[in-house]
């Protein structure tokens, strides 16, 4: 699914969050949005999901205006988005049940998906009984089970420790390679963006505006990101992080 933002403005009352943002995301592309907190990146995801409407401009998917949420465009949240009153398998199955698929069939498929993210045996656990990493694996399963064409990730691994995060990034990358959705990834983690993204958009402070775009299409990547050191440095500099040792 091809996503397109045309001159999008978004205001919440007097607060101007996004101003004149335009961008195209080709089908199957993974675009990372990096920027200071509160700069409006998450709002872009909510616009693409259809949870919010733009104040001005157009957001379209394959040429059709996005007016409401739908299972073709799914959103993965940072944390606590699983339902604490449902077991892991029921959390995943709910995504299918909302589309009118029967409970037992939804459960069967949910079970398969939990296995797919290495959570076989944890089906009957409640979210509070498992680790944060396992919860986010479940959230990924819940997102992919509906075979979305657009996947919107809102700092999905932001609350995890560094090692768990890298393991989850690999799970995510495999799933994306298999199912090839168009992905918008909001992250604070520059390394995560470098590792996963085909393109990185670096945003300014609010109202969000693209400072610079980096293209990594067709790059082979591993967690050793040393060959991207110069891009990393540049992105951090754009975000106002010092990368040079100061001599005085």
């Amino acid at each position: 699914m091809h996503l397109s933002f045309e001159q999008v403005d978004k205001r919440f009352g007097k607060l101007e969050v996004i101003k004149g943002f335009s961008g195209e995301m080709a089908s199957g592309e993974l675009v990372a949005l990096v920027g200071p907190s509160g700069c409006g990146k998450s709002t872009l995801l909510h616009l693409a999901a259809g949870l919010e409407k733009p104040t001005a401009g157009k957001v379209t998917a394959d040429g059709n205006a996005i007016t409401q949420p739908g299972p073709k465009r799914t959103l993965v949240f940072q944390e606590h988005a699983l339902y604490p009153w449902l077991t892991l398998v029921d959390n995943v199955a709910m995504a299918l049940e909302m589309q009118g698929i029967g409970k037992s069939s939804a459960r069967e498929q949910a079970k398969t998906w939990l296995g797919r993210v290495n959570l076989a045996g944890f089906e009957q656990y409640y979210p509070h009984q498992v680790s944060g990493g396992m919860r986010q694996r479940t959230a990924l399963a819940r997102a992919f089970i509906a075979s979305p064409e657009v996947l919107l990730l809102d700092e999905p691994f932001g609350a995890l420790d560094a090692l768990t995060r890298m393991a989850l990034q690999d799970v995510l990358r495999e799933l994306i390679e298999e199912h090839k959705p168009t992905v918008l990834l909001v992250t604070h983690d520059v390394d995560e963006a470098l590792y996963l993204a085909d393109r990185i958009l670096v945003f300014s402070n609010r109202p969000a505006r693209v400072l610079k775009e980096f293209n990594f299409t067709h790059c082979e990547k591993s967690h050793d990101l040393s060959e991207f050191a110069s891009e990393r440095k540049e992105i951090l500099a754009l975000l106002g992080i010092k990368t040079e040792v100061e001599h005085s």
């Binding site: 909510h46 999901a49 949870l51 949420p69 739908g70 299972p71 465009r73 799914t74 959103l75 949240f77 606590h80 988005a81 339902y83 709910m94 995504a95 909302m98 589309q99 509906a146």
Partner: peptide, 21 residues
């Protein structure tokens, strides 16, 4: 929690499903 409501809306929940589920 707004995130619980948003998650269900993204799944395509109707108003009635939102209330019930």
């Amino acid at each position: 929690q707004p995130v619980h409501v948003a998650a269900a809306r993204v799944m395509g929940a109707s108003r009635w499903q939102l209330i019930k589920r």
